[in-house]
Design a protein around this nucleic acid. Structure first.
Lengths: 335, 335
DNA sequence: GTGAAAGCGCTAACAT
DNA sequence: ATGTTAGCGCTTTCAC
């Protein structure tokens, strides 16, 4: 391992100057800077992260907390964050925060407290009160993406507005009997996004003078399979089947499409379906959806945390979303 | 930040003893060990990673290289690795190694060389020769999961055997006109798994005395959409359509199922389909598949790298796989 | 603009 | 079994 002294010797300067030249902190003449860089280059020198961290207190490393690594949405956000951070020379330390309680505790009580990260990003994760306490006690910038907690600075889409938009799209096509596939109550206990989507849905209906009917709601677990089951229920129930379904995620919407097909309904001729997310499979299924650009959410979070690191506080920020009309929604045709 | 001296003072011992007691290296009497632990506990002391790393040369951190974070297979392997590593008090630094060449270079030339990781795991990633040179030059344990490179210690499933198993399943059901959806040549240029699957497929056919017909092969890109397109080709081509399809991934197999349905073929009555992976969607589609247990692959890699870290060399290891017969394959019925 | 020197918070000999 | 001490490889005052 070539160390800073060797670079200093080769460049004919002190280690202090090498440090300044390579880090960009403190002034160094252009000439020496060039010489130092050349020396570092020929020696293949790379600053030792532990030594630098110990001396400076900065790590150039961000901790990222992710709940369901295997779900498309989360890994997509993570990919966005990772790319953006790497672009700035930052590493990312990944903490998979699952239901495994002992592991989970260790993240908050030990792993995050080892002085290994400069800041943390929590990706759409429902945190306990004590966990948030611990994050706050870390005394470093913390940013949440899409979580429900008011104590954390949060980047989020306006889920009420998202749902309203999807529902208004359906209303605009003439639909009046619109069902909603949302979260089961347990699922939503600590994570409020699904409830907000339901609120937006009901707001839109009410604003259009359409009554909200409890039989037109069916809970599911945000998977294709869950959406499939829920849609079967909705479509199978006697007495006025829905002519449109708003699913709170694209994966559930895809499940609904398959359920409809299996029951012999044509999408969108007999049934319109709209989802939320911007899932990669959306194009294939020609799914109309409200895209929330998950990869960009991740990037945005990375930028925000970097800003927090060399400047002052960040405010909660509203993330963009957009209706993408494809082939699973159509005008209501008189039955 | 409470430091080791405070713990030493409170426990009435030297910092060296605290270090020994907390790390488990070197002997400490049970009594003092208990006192030190108590002191650390009441003070909420956690060892500073940079300081410890600088002094010891160990980081308790593993670098993980992942190519397509958004693909189910990769994020599942990663989740397995992450959980297992965390269980042992290790952090994981995630490097997303994509087609972005400048970023990619920075991983190998800078990020990995900062003394931040004790070892690296490369998850099913096609590495260039120079990249492998750089990994080897890192002078630390490196482990690959499922990659093609002979210079790296690799944990992998026997892809030839996997394909043979899938094909033999189909042959055993009486099928003789079996098609294969595999990788396009470009896709396989630097990553040989797809080719191995094709070899296994052809081996099985030949062993059963069935001629290999080029028209019964169709390349795709390992996505649902790709599998869909490929199956349409295979089934639409005039002259002896296949009665069974072996797809080199579950996602392609799912695409094939949908293509078959759309063309009016019943699965498995008219067409049997088998995939590879053990994808989470497999149950929903009742897909017969050869499961390769991705989550366990990740765990296994974590265990192997930990073993490498405190002992001697590891040998390449064969990973388990298993035929899971569900509902998309059936006996050939006379047409 | 540059150098000297004092740490950053630990661990690992080496003593005892 | 425990204490003393010398670093680990940087960054950052403080001088000049």
């Amino acid at each position: 391992m070539v160390s800073i002294d060797e670079v200093a010797r080769l460049a004919g300067v002190s280690t202090a100057t090498v440090s300044r030249a390579l880090s960009g902190r403190g002034r160094v003449s252009d000439a020496t800077k060039a010489r130092v860089e050349a020396a570092a280059d020929t020696l293949g020198y790379v600053v030792s992260a532990p030594a630098s961290s110990l001396a400076s207190g900065r790590t150039r490393n961000i901790g990222v907390l992710v709940p369901f690594l295997q779900r498309w949405f989360f890994s997509t956000v993570l990919a966005g964050t990772a790319a953006e951070l790497m672009r700035h020379g930052y590493d990312i330390t990944l903490y998979s925060v699952t239901e495994d309680l002992p592991l989970r505790r260790s993240v908050f009580e030990t792993l995050l407290r080892r002085q290994r990260v400069d800041a943390v990003i929590a990706v759409s994760i429902a945190l306990g009160d004590d966990e948030i306490d611990r994050l706050l006690a870390l005394d470093m910038p913390v940013l949440a993406i899409g979580g429900p907690d008011p104590r954390l600075t949060t980047l989020s889409v306006d889920d009420v507005a998202v749902a309203r938009l999807a529902t208004e799209h359906l209303l605009g096509l003439g639909h009046r009997t619109i069902a909603h596939i949302g979260a089961s109550p347990e699922f939503d206990l600590d994570f409020h996004i699904p409830t907000q989507r339901r609120q937006g849905f009901e707001q839109a209906l009410t604003a259009a003078g359409v009554a909200v009917r409890p039989t037109l709601f069916e809970p599911a677990d945000f998977t294709i399979e869950g959406g499939f089951r829920a849609a079967k229920q909705l479509l199978g129930r006697p007495g006025g089947r829905p002519t449109a379904i708003f699913a709170a995620s694209d994966e559930m919407a895809i499940g609904a499409i398959m359920a409809a097909r299996e029951l012999g309904y044509r999408v969108p001729a007999d049934l319109s379906i709209v989802g939320v997310d911007g899932h990669e499979l959306g194009g294939f299924f020609r799914l109309t959806t409200v895209d929330q650009f998950p990869a960009r959410q991740g990037e945005r979070a990375a930028q925000a945390i970097l800003a927090l690191l060399d400047a002052a506080g960040a405010q909660p920020e509203q993330l963009p979303f957009e209706l993408v009309v494809r082939g699973t929604t159509a005008r209501l045709t008189e039955v």
